[in-house]
Design a binder for these strands. Structure first.
Length: 109
DNA sequence: AGCGTGACAAGGT
DNA sequence: GACCTTGCCACGC
């Protein structure tokens, strides 16, 4: 099951991000976002996961703003062209967002 | 067993 | 947006 979570995380394209809940759903574990967080927390660096692409649904990073890990994650994202605005990653950087519904409601772009 | 806690989410005010 | 509340689930005490 941890494997499913790893797969979902590795499936996030470079330069894009995904919310914990999204990852959980894509791993076949809807409603278990916290599990994703716990698995991530306990995964060794050797797992070589793009962990920095996983963040909260509202675009904020899970780590406290003043923390070292937060800075590290922000740096890694920045290196892929993902910048935070007002402390959060804009919706346009989210992978797997329901583009069709967005366009139906708000029009293309 | 009960309860607080957490790399969370969604809905309401 | 900021907060709160509720739902969720695994852990540790």
């Amino acid at each position: 099951m941890q494997q499913a979570i790893f797969r979902a995380i590795r499936a996030i394209p470079r330069g894009r991000v995904a919310a914990y809940g999204e990852v959980a759903s894509r791993a076949g574990l809807p409603g278990r976002a916290r599990l994703v967080g716990r698995v991530l927390r306990e995964s060794p660096a050797s797992a070589k996961l793009p962990w920095h692409r996983v963040l909260r649904a509202d675009g904020r990073l899970a780590f406290p703003e003043d923390s070292v890990p937060h800075a590290e994650q922000r740096k890694r994202l920045s290196r892929e062209g993902v910048e935070l605005l007002s402390g959060r990653v804009p919706r346009r950087f989210f992978a797997w967002r329901d583009v069709e519904l967005d366009e139906a409601l708000w029009g293309p772009r």
